[in-house]
Amino acid sequence: MTTTGTRTTAIALHGVHKVFGESSTRVEALAGIDLDVGAGEFVAIMGPSGSGKSTLLHLIGGLDVATSGTVAVGGEDLASLNDDQLTMLRRRKIGFVFQAYNLVSVLTAIENVALPLIIDGIAESRANERAGRALDLVGLGSRPDHRPGEMSGGEQQRIAIARSLVAEPVLLLADEPTGNLDSVTGDQTMRLLRRLVDEEGQTVIMVTHDARDAAMADRIVRLRDGRIVEEQTLPPVKSGADVLASLEGLDAPEDAP
């Protein structure tokens, strides 16, 4: 791993291009991306549809390969890995959360969460112990035996988040995580992600078109036409009262005599 200052770099992209198709159908989805994300940082990627944000997430997650440039996760250059090594990296270092929860309906909550560990060859008792801890982390520790169909959308997304965390990944990738949720459960999901960053030091990169979700991050990266056109680091948060004091319109206006 590389470090900048005291902070470890969780992912580093340099000069990343991604081209789909050839000649007349050639589309440059990513046109030279440089991006470093520090460990424990929460980054939101925004941009209009077709700007390359999902492609970027797929490259970081090792689900697709860059046409040129380097993508390094936890200090490992993805291009230097063979298919098996890439699979291991996805399984052990990266957690994925999608808009669809992708849970197995016949399995209970804890079985769903333990599944990645079982696939990785970890003994069931040990896998269940770790899955139980992951469920505690998302506030569902008391409902390990419920099946997805018996839970609300927000709860199912929390199980999906627990599953993404069970292998203790260096990086959590989220693609429109609140896309299927109403605004209340969407807020709860975002608060959970924020808490994982603040209290567990989890690194999170999230693609979203939702301003409210993006505003929960530490940094917003905006893409257009495959390029980063804007980056904004958001300042530390004040108390609710301080926030209100900074908003206008609360001072009493003069009434007409």
Partner: peptide, 13 residues
Amino acid sequence: FERLHQATQARAR
């Protein structure tokens, strides 16, 4: 965005 960041997190707290 700066203000929304403040407001959403203050709201969560």
